[in-house]
């Protein structure tokens, strides 16, 4: 009774997820419905990503899990431990060593390669959901390629705030066809989505899987006179000195003093050790 199948899920469930992944790859940006199962972690805590990883991992894989860019955040640890227990595979903190990376809210700073797969945890896969709550309606909009509502929303932002007031989960258009939610990554990460690795998105509670094959065209929605801007804090990392990474702001004393550090902890550590080596 204590022995679970490789990667927890039974084979029939894995096949169902695998078929959805393949259709997702064949129709980039389209949300494939799948019969998500209850996993041993709560819905909203990465069950979609966990199911995709479970259907994807092989015994030879080296697995990395990040949450907010960091390997040692509690939920990343919990998911990594789960897979160690149910697959026995190797795990790593190092982006370059990993073959499968499961992420919540970030894309690693290190460019991914053709031999890697990036699995995203997605809370609300429908980019139109907060504009139109009914699934029956949003499905029609995708079928008809009717995305006027989204542009109206972005335009209203501009007329109200002078800028598009979306800073994360910034919608993208895939290969000129489907508008897609990139999961709640900061918009700083959006340009990285045209990458060499395979990207698979899993939304467990909402029962959707979607995917981007390598080098798929991914364009952040914008207007000619208000072009998309991948913004970040206007600082350098106070630990490694990087100027082109996404930064977290940390309050360090009672006076509200703050510093800025890389959200990608593996990248930051690599920069530090590189700096150390060159100074020796």
């Amino acid at each position: 009774m204590n022995e679970y199948n490789f990667a927890y899920l039974d084979e029939q469930t894995k096949r169902m997820i695998r078929r959805a992944i393949l259709k997702g790859l064949a129709i980039p940006g389209y949300q494939v419905p799948f019969a998500s199962r209850e996993m041993p972690m709560p819905y909203g805590w990465g069950t979609g990503g966990v199911q995709v990883s479970a259907a994807t991992l092989t015994p030879e894989d080296i697995f990395k899990v990040i949450d907010q860019g960091a390997d040692d955040t509690t939920n990343a640890i919990s998911i990594r431990k789960f897979f160690q227990k149910v697959t026995g595979i190797k795990v790593t903190d190092k982006t370059i060593d990993a073959t499968v990376i499961q992420t919540r809210h970030r894309i690693p700073e290190t460019s991914l390669t053709e031999d890697q797969i990036l699995v995203y945890q997605v809370p609300i896969p429908e980019p139109l959901r907060f504009l139109e709550p009914y699934e029956t309606e949003t499905r029609k909009m995708h079928a008809l390629e009717e995305y006027g509502l989204m542009y109206v929303k972005l335009y209203e932002d501009i007329s109200r705030h002078g800028a598009i007031a979306t800073s994360y989960a910034y919608p993208v258009k895939v290969e000129g066809r489907y508008v897609m939610d990139p999961s709640p990554i900061p918009k700083f990460d959006n340009p990285k989505m045209e990458m060499a690795a395979i990207q698979i998105f899993g939304a467990g509670r909402e029962q959707r899987i979607y995917a981007l094959p390598p080098y798929t065209q991914v364009v952040s929605l914008d207007f000619d006179d208000y072009p998309f801007e991948a913004s970040k804090a206007d600082h350098v990392c106070d630990i490694c000195g990087s100027s082109d990474t996404y930064l977290d702001e940390v309050i360090v004393d009672d006076q509200g003093g703050r510093i800025f550090v890389c959200s990608d902890t593996d990248f930051c550590a690599a920069q530090q050790s590189a700096a150390l080596e060159s100074s020796e």
Binding site: F6, A7, K14, A26, T56, T58, E114, I198
Partner: peptide
Amino acid sequence: NPPIDSARAFRRITNAMARP
């Protein structure tokens, strides 16, 4: 060994479908 053989096979099929 179905869980292992199919996992390995699926990776190959994924690569084939993702990289025409």
